[in-house]
Computed example of a mutant assay.
Amino acid sequence: MLNSFRNIALACALSMLAGYVDGIGYLHLGGLFVSFMSGNSTRMAVSLAGGDWPVVGQAFMVIVLFVIGAACGSLIVLGRRSYRQPWVLLAEAMLLVIAGLCHAFGLAIYAIAAIVLAMGLENAAFQVDGGGGLGVTYVTGALVKVGQLIGSALAGGARFAWAPNLLLWAALVLGAVLGALAYHWINLASIWFAAGFAFALCAVAALTEPQ
């Protein structure tokens, strides 16, 4: 999937968007993530062991919403033959708009719910037929591939095959920095920047869709 400049650039942009939104969500939720469910699963388990039931419930609901978002993204992809990525990104952008409106009307809990759904849905942007594909809201897999492909390069394989996956990681980190700065500046209203960026990526994906 990271086999063209177009796909690498779009994947990195989506990873940066996910990092931005996750930085916002992490600060707002006090240590829970909106796109990194491995971290939330560990937090839920530790809280379960410690009897911290409010955190257990909160983490569990975030995980459920993320899975629902991923399922909705899959339905969009599987229901269309063309312009799959633009439709996924349009749906994501609309969810982020809903999140911004919910915050504006003082409904922060619904804003977070819409954000988590958007993050789950975003992972369908590079979904292949039959399910699976490239995850762009978490980078553990990308870092594993960096290490594996570096090992392959040292053994005589492609010298820079690891670079696109490293770029995915760097993009997410940069996005998280920007998200944290924006949250400290204007709180959850910072999600409007994410919505605008998602709309822009939707347009770019539509204009550059391979024919």
Score class of each variant (00 low, 15 high):
72 C>Y: 14
150 I>T: 14
49 A>L: 12
139 V>N: 12
126 F>A: 08
182 A>K: 13
16 M>E: 06
84 R>M: 03
30 G>H: 00
90 L>C: 07
150 I>E: 10
138 Y>D: 10
104 A>F: 12
192 W>Q: 08
79 G>N: 07
72 C>S: 12
66 F>Y: 12
35 S>F: 02
101 L>D: 00
187 N>Y: 12
1 M>S: 14
76 I>N: 03
8 I>T: 08
45 A>K: 00
138 Y>Q: 15
114 A>K: 08
144 V>H: 15
169 W>G: 04
21 V>H: 07
166 L>E: 06
122 E>K: 09
78 L>S: 15
129 D>T: 12
66 F>D: 07
181 L>S: 13
183 Y>F: 15
92 E>S: 07
192 W>D: 09
205 A>P: 07
28 H>F: 14
48 L>S: 06
145 K>H: 10
147 G>D: 00
121 L>G: 01
115 I>K: 10
92 E>T: 00
27 L>N: 08
144 V>Q: 15
1 M>R: 03
163 A>Y: 11
35 S>D: 09
19 G>W: 04
150 I>A: 14
201 L>K: 04
82 S>T: 09
194 A>S: 11
6 R>H: 05
57 G>F: 03
172 L>N: 05
196 G>V: 09
69 G>D: 01
75 L>M: 11
24 I>S: 11
151 G>W: 01
93 A>F: 01
16 M>Y: 00
73 G>N: 05
202 C>N: 01
151 G>N: 03
146 V>R: 04
75 L>Y: 09
168 L>V: 05
32 L>K: 08
76 I>G: 00
39 G>H: 10
